[in-house]
């Protein structure tokens, strides 16, 4: 067992070094190396405390999930270029949609209402909502920058910022959802997802494992789509002044 730990950690470090060297070609070595190192430390700490968390009273799970949503929101906020009032919008959109998708699994009794189910399921939903939201806001900002002439052509005719940015917003959402849509298309063909794998390895019935997996999968997709839509909807006003002018500093 100890040998496996050493080997796995050794391989992790070697792969991270390789990723950092390759990332240097694109000028992102610092972000890749720091994110990787941070991830390794965080997951090792989590592995030490997760069993402890599973044994705590249920309200602790709610707090853990809220903390996760706050961290996820902050990460997405940094991708937005730290736009005005976007921290609250990012946290709220990720938290509300993830919680809304979490509720039916426990209300319908698909999972028992216990921390060992609540925390991992919440983390899957929140993590994916964060990924989609970060991609969406980053792409939306890029679209506004690249299609500034189009946006201003709309504004010059007297449209609202929301009308002027409609195409950019749709492109932002679509681009952010491409990985999720591709995963959904290839579910079971190219990609065997984690929940199902875990259930199968622990001896569950394959049909039961597959049923739960697809419901989680669609919930993940929906959480990502709704969270990113809400975020971009609120983000639009942050890109404009009260006089409906594009803010240079936000782009």
């Amino acid at each position: 067992m100890a040998d496996v730990v050493v080997l796995a950690l050794g391989l992790t470090v070697a792969l991270l070094v390789l990723a950092t060297i390759l990332a240097a070609r694109y000028g992102i070595w610092k972000e890749v190396s720091l994110s990787g190192a941070r991830g390794i430390v965080q997951i090792l700490i989590l592995s030490s405390v997760i069993i402890l968390m599973f044994n705590l009273p249920l309200y602790w799970s709610a707090l853990v999930i809220l903390a996760m949503a706050a961290v996820a929101g902050y990460t997405t906020f940094t991708r937005s270029g730290r736009l005005d009032r976007m921290l609250q919008a990012a946290v709220a959109s990720i938290a509300v949609t993830s919680l809304a998708m979490l509720v039916p699994f426990f209300a319908l009794g698909i999972f028992p209402l216990e921390p060992r189910y609540l925390i991992p399921t919440g983390s899957i939903l929140i993590g994916n909502a964060m990924n989609v939201s970060s991609l969406a806001i980053d792409r939306y900002r890029g679209e506004l920058r690249n299609r500034r002439a189009e946006v201003e052509a709309y504004l010059a005719l007297g449209t609202t910022p929301r009308m002027a940015t409609e195409h950019c917003l749709k492109q932002g959402i679509l681009s952010a959802l491409i990985p999720s849509i591709d995963n959904m298309k290839n579910l079971g063909l190219v990609w065997i997802p984690g929940v199902m794998t875990g259930m199968l390895l622990s001896g569950s019935d394959p049909v039961q494992a597959a049923s739960i997996q697809v419901s989680i999968f669609i919930a993940i997709f929906l959480a990502g789509m709704i969270a990113s839509s809400l975020l971009l909807y609120y983000a639009t006003s942050a890109f404009f002044t009260h006089a409906m002018q594009l803010k240079d500093e936000a782009l």
């Binding site: 002439a149 052509a153 010059a156 005719l157 007297g158 449209t159 609202t160 006089a243 002018q245």
Partner: peptide, 15 residues
């Protein structure tokens, strides 16, 4: 209102 101003004052851009 910026929208009303822009309706009254149209603009044609270079590109």
């Amino acid at each position: 209102d910026p929208r009303e101003l822009r309706r009254r004052v149209g603009m044609v851009f270079q590109i």
